[in-house]
């Protein structure tokens, strides 16, 4: 894996207006993504994790302009040059979409029920005018085999497939244009564990075969740990921590990350220090986020400064790769995942 940056997202914002009354006047904004900056490196898998409503899906969609961002810059490296995709016109955007594709969560609603597998997978090739119809069919056959389906499935329709197979169709469609970056938005969340393992393995195989870069959005920290190289943790529209996988699980630097690690079910009886850390309350509304640090309403370590001043995302001492947005990063001694998973194996 190189350390070359493929995509550089800076100060990205996405505000959705809240309209009220008969005149549909804008009465406020839901700050779904609020000033988010991160990079995706060539060949890596960047995991993005957070609870529902934290803005992770909106971020994934905004960076490829499936949703138009409110503000901020997204630079994508093409042939050694960084290009600002938020300024792209329609033609440039279409060319850009060949390089970046998306796999969605729900394989039941992301496929058109009236299109056969052949039509679904060859549609991107058709839209981008690649090859004759015959060539396209050949390519679809090849893609189906790549994702572990059979050519006999060519003329079937989505309802004839199981969830795992549908997700494979979605992956074949995403691969059709030979993209560089694939954004997987909760791509395995709707699947049974045995099938989830198949798809995770498939994604890893495809990555090494085609040198793909992934941005993997998920709420399941075990899945994120399995597939990611680096991880971005989001809370209420903001990034609270960025770290390599190792750093995040061994040495979390934001209290929210600690709380997430403490909440992961481990399937065993915990003892002593391994007791779950319970976070009180729920995520505040992104339409009316609390002042200061947005996490202070639930943070067990919150002090006065947290209620007044918003922390910035800064490097954690001695590691350029590790950033956290907390006033007390250096002072706090947070528990690692391994502290939380001390278990009692005596059978008592």
């Amino acid at each position: 894996m190189s350390t070359e940056t493929l995509m550089r997202v800076s100060n990205l914002k996405k505000y959705f207006p809240i309209r009220k009354g008969v005149l549909r006047r804008v009465a406020g904004h839901v700050k779904a993504v609020d000033d988010v900056s991160f990079q995706i490196r060539q060949g890596e898998t960047l995991g993005m994790v957070g609870e529902s409503g934290c803005g992770k899906s909106t971020t994934g969609r905004s960076i490829i302009r499936l949703i138009e961002p409110t503000a901020g810059s997204v630079k994508y490296r093409t042939a050694g040059q960084e290009e600002e995709i938020t300024h792209f016109n329609k033609t440039q955007m279409k060319a850009f979409r060949q390089r970046v594709q998306m796999v969605f969560q729900d394989p039941f609603s992301s496929l058109d029920p009236r299109m056969s597998v052949r039509d679904t997978v060859s549609e991107p090739l058709f839209v981008h005018r690649m090859g004759s119809q015959k060539e396209r069919t050949e390519q679809v056959k090849e893609l189906l085999q790549t994702v572990g389906l059979s050519v006999t499935h060519l003329n079937r329709f989505p309802h004839q497939f199981s969830g795992g197979q549908r997700q494979r169709i979605g992956i074949a469609r995403a691969l059709a244009l030979r993209p560089e970056l694939i954004i997987c938005d909760e791509a395995v969340s709707a699947l049974d564990v045995s099938v989830q393992a198949q798809i995770l393995n498939l994604l890893q195989d495809l990555q090494s075969e085609f040198g793909l870069t992934y941005m993997f959005i998920a709420h399941d920290l075990s899945v994120i740990d399995y597939i990611s190289d680096r991880i971005v943790v989001m809370y209420l529209g903001k990034i609270v921590e960025v770290a390599t996988k190792q750093q995040l699980y061994d040495n979390p630097s934001h209290p929210y990350t600690e709380a997430l690690l403490g909440a992961i079910p481990i399937g065993e009886k915990r003892v002593g220090e391994g007791k779950r850390l319970l976070l009180g309350g729920t995520v505040p509304s992104p339409a009316n986020p609390p002042p200061g640090c947005t996490f202070h309403t639930r943070c067990p370590y919150a002090a006065d400064i947290c209620r007044q001043k918003e922390p910035v995302l800064e490097s954690v001492a001695n590691s350029g790769d590790h950033q956290a947005a907390c006033h007390f990063t250096t002072e706090l001694e947070l528990k690692s995942f391994y502290d939380f998973s001390q278990v009692d194996r005596s059978g008592a």
Binding site: D192, V193, S194, Q198, N201, D225, Y249, F337, Y338
Partner: peptide, 23 residues
């Protein structure tokens, strides 16, 4: 056994064992 091997576990790096086929 397969179910246990198919769950990603934090800190475990080896490839997941998937169960071929489906229910």
């Amino acid at each position: 056994r397969s179910l246990l091997a198919a769950i990603p576990r934090i800190g475990r790096r080896e490839r997941l064992v998937s169960i071929p086929g489906r229910v």
